[in-house]
Amino acid sequence: MNSNSYSPGLHKLVTLQVDDINKLTNSKQFIVFTDAILEKFDLEKVGLVTHDFDNDSFTIAVCLKESHICIHTWPEFQQLTLDVYLCNYLQDNSAKVRAVVNDYIDYFSAVIIKDFEINR
């Protein structure tokens, strides 16, 4: 890639409506699913931070060699926000970002409320 055509990566941000409150309150199950996603898409985890709130919502940041996956849940509103960014260091990972987000949408059986793509 030359410097004029280089794109650091695709950053996808979604807000989802989720009917299954258990999936919005079970951070451990989300981590297990995320580990499966990382294996499926050959992504390397370099760190993980989890915070469970008093109302059973959670925030998780998964730091990847390729960048990150972050989630924040609001069970009281049946919603979550998901942030997936993969860098394009050696290859274009845009399709992979979209596939990862789609797998999470399937996992949550979610309806998309907001969907943003930022080409960095």
Rank of each mutant, 00 (worst) to 15 (best):
P75R: 06
G9F: 05
F33T: 02
V62K: 10
T15Q: 11
K40S: 06
F33H: 02
W74K: 03
L16G: 13
A61H: 15
A95N: 14
S94K: 06
I21R: 10
D19K: 15
L86K: 04
A99V: 08
I60N: 02
L86H: 03
F77Y: 10
N2C: 07
Q78C: 15
V46G: 09
A95K: 13
N2M: 05
C70V: 15
F58I: 02
L48T: 12
I112E: 04
S3R: 12
H68S: 04
D92H: 00
S5Q: 01
S67V: 01
S57M: 09
L82P: 00
L86E: 04
D56S: 12
L86G: 05
N102R: 12
Y107N: 03
A99E: 15
A61F: 14
K96H: 07
D52H: 00
D106R: 14
S5R: 04
F108L: 11
R120M: 04
L80Y: 00
I37M: 11
D56R: 12
Q78T: 15
N22V: 00
C63S: 15
V97C: 06
Y104L: 08
D92G: 01
D42K: 13
H11I: 05
N102A: 15
L16S: 02
R120Y: 04
Y85T: 12
I118V: 03
K45N: 12
L38Q: 02
N4A: 05
K12M: 05
L48R: 13
E39H: 12
K96V: 07
E39Q: 15
S94P: 02
V100T: 13
D20L: 08
L16R: 07
F41H: 04
Y89M: 00
T34L: 03
R98A: 10
K96I: 10
A99M: 13
K28I: 08
N88A: 06
L24F: 01
T25F: 06
F30W: 08
E39A: 13
L38T: 05
V32R: 10
V84D: 02
Q79N: 11
P75Y: 03
Q29Y: 00
N55T: 01
S67C: 06
N22M: 01
K12Q: 07
L80N: 01
I118H: 04
K45P: 11
S67E: 07
S109G: 14
K12V: 05
Q78G: 15
A110Q: 09
W74I: 03
K65G: 01
E66I: 09
F30L: 12
D20A: 09
S5G: 05
H68G: 06
S3Q: 10
W74E: 01
E66G: 07
S27K: 00
Y85V: 15
Q29R: 00
